[in-house]
Design a binder for these strands. Structure first.
Lengths: 332, 332
DNA sequence: CCTAGCACATATTTTATGCAAGTGCTAATA
DNA sequence: TATTAGCACTTGCATAAAATATGTGCTAGG
């Protein structure tokens, strides 16, 4: 592709990102230093390559998805964060009083605020967690609570109504055995070891061992199933306030997608680095662009995603997410 | 107000609720058993009382807010739940495996599903909770986690980086003292008793008692401040899918109100029973009706609110919320 | 290879027109 | 006196027609 064509594409993409209006040949004469007719000829070339599109036969050009992709990969230069924005983010990262998940949630609030796009965290406790301790706390004659804590400080609890034949001391005793034997076991292997290592032991020492076993089993399975839970949104309205959402149907469609938890969960990313999915490339909605990055930090991991129109300000968002990506990943 | 006028108002309100179309005199002839002219005369009377309104000089009538209020207070009869709906709700209430807050969240999902309106829970742990146990779990040399559990089974935790001069045994010892002395203390009095009862004791037994005291203080205060947190939405899109939201501006306005946490928190209710706020009567948005009820159950309390257009199906919603209100309130 | 100029295409906005729904008022009726 | 029939009038809505603006494609000449 010729230099002038690259420059032309860049100008068109950036103009469209700013104004949301199809770009006419005349408006680019000055920038490209040639007449509108020349630009029109080049536009035809770019259109034949599939990088530009027209709304109708005599309108200005808008970038195609392929055009955006070319722009993102070859023409765009990520923008550095402003000092002010860095400051805002640092305030959060360095606040030790926040639980990590709160910190990340707040982080997304800020992302949404400074980019003016919708952002999402899909967080889960990391599979790297290992068992630190399980405790049984009796609440009444027949009610107990089981609290599971991992080495990374993730705590979860579950209540149980216990059958009359189980004595609470048996539960406590079992919890002590588990704590001794399974300390440091990766949290997603605990269920298995419960069955193969613990069950045989308690079967000798405890009368109602089957029921007791089931309670702990359930407690740990509950823990595992809660791993995936946390979804946090920020700035849902930012997207639908973009001028491309100027009709009711479109807004309703996207709003109800935001409500669809299954769909949101699909946003989860597993590739490292900054990943850009333009229009049809993403599973969420063909009219938006989703830019994602992952984090691994203090025993939690997850995806941070920014959702905006296809004419997203790629340079700013990539700059911002790169910064976050660097700050929220620790080496294994 | 005359009988016929009451009947007329009732018919108009119910027709408008169903069809969202201004109600003309002709369409009511059969129901009221008289001519359209008579109805028009009565309509003028109702309009003069402020119960009806017109969109423009020659349109049909729609109920005013005052009209809805009169309807709600005098003309409406709450609808019984269908057996199917009762079943759905009972399944949740009687599922002992669910944490209460999950149960209530699920309950709202169902409310939203069967009413087709947006619903919200504003939940908090009840102030009635008393301290059951606080435990210190060491995670590493310098990191511990404090887990607080109440008699109602509410569990919360907070991580601390501890200063080098504090020994973990001191923390554990203090936690034992607290557990012995403050067992059964109402959770919102714990901080106070920590200062007046516990501090003097540990000051004699423990070297770094000031720092130790502060850690527990923070843990309990963190607990207290988390009391108000839980907000759960369901069916946000249901409201904006109603035909009255047929323009982009209106939808954007309401969507961004849903994002405004401060505003949402104002929805919290403190009156008992079922409370209806029509249009200007509610603080959330003058174009909607909010119907609320409160719950007090198993150590948690909060507000359940249903948000719909002013032409809400009052009879169904009131019926549903009454049922929920009866099932989710235990006497003190 | 670039550019000026012109015919043509489409969207957008404005204006005109006819139809449907429903009211208010008056005069007649039971 | 309460009810009704009839009619003039108002407004909203849908559709069509006209005017305007923007921008293209193509041809011919520099």
């Amino acid at each position: 592709m010729e230099e002038r064509q690259k420059k032309l594409l860049k100008e068109i993409v950036e103009s469209y990102i700013k104004t949301v209006k199809p770009v006419g040949s005349k408006s680019l004469c000055e920038k490209l230093n040639c007449s509108s007719a020349t630009i029109r000829n080049e536009m035809v070339a770019l259109e034949e390559m599939g990088l530009l599109e027209k709304n109708h036969i005599s309108s200005g050009r808008i970038p195609s998805e392929k055009g955006y992709r070319y722009y993102v990969e070859n023409l765009m230069k990520p923008k550095e964060l402003t000092g002010e924005d860095v400051l805002k983010l640092q305030t959060i990262f360095s606040n030790n009083n926040l639980q990590l998940s709160d910190a990340i949630n707040q982080c997304v609030e800020i992302i949404s605020e400074i980019t003016n796009y919708t952002s999402i965290v899909l967080g889960k406790k990391s599979h790297n967690n290992t068992l630190r301790q399980v405790s049984i706390i009796p609440l009444s004659e027949e009610k107990i609570i089981a609290v599971v804590c991992t080495d990374q400080g993730v705590v979860q609890n579950k209540q149980f109504i216990i059958p009359k034949q189980i004595r609470i001391e048996e539960l406590v005793k079992t919890s002590e055995i588990i704590n001794k034997m399974l300390l440091g076991t990766p949290i997603d292997e605990v269920s298995e070891r419960l069955e193969y290592d613990i069950k045989p032991i308690i079967s000798k020492k405890i009368e109602q061992y089957e029921s007791v076993y089931h309670i702990f089993m359930e407690a740990f399975q509950n823990f595992a199933s809660n791993l995936q839970e946390n979804i946090h949104f920020s700035g849902k309205h930012k997207l639908i306030e973009k001028p491309e959402y100027n009709n009711v149907e479109e807004i309703r469609k996207i709003t109800s997608k935001f409500e669809d938890e299954k769909l949101i969960k699909k946003i989860e990313e597993n590739k490292k680095g900054i990943n850009i999915y333009i229009g049809e490339e993403n599973e969420f909605d063909p009219n938006v662009t989703v830019i994602k990055t992952t984090y691994h930090y203090h025993g939690e991991e997850g995806t941070i995603a920014i959702i905006g129109p296809k004419r997203m300000e790629y340079d700013r968002v990539v700059g911002l997410l790169s910064y976050i990506n660097e700050n929220l990943n620790e080496e294994d």
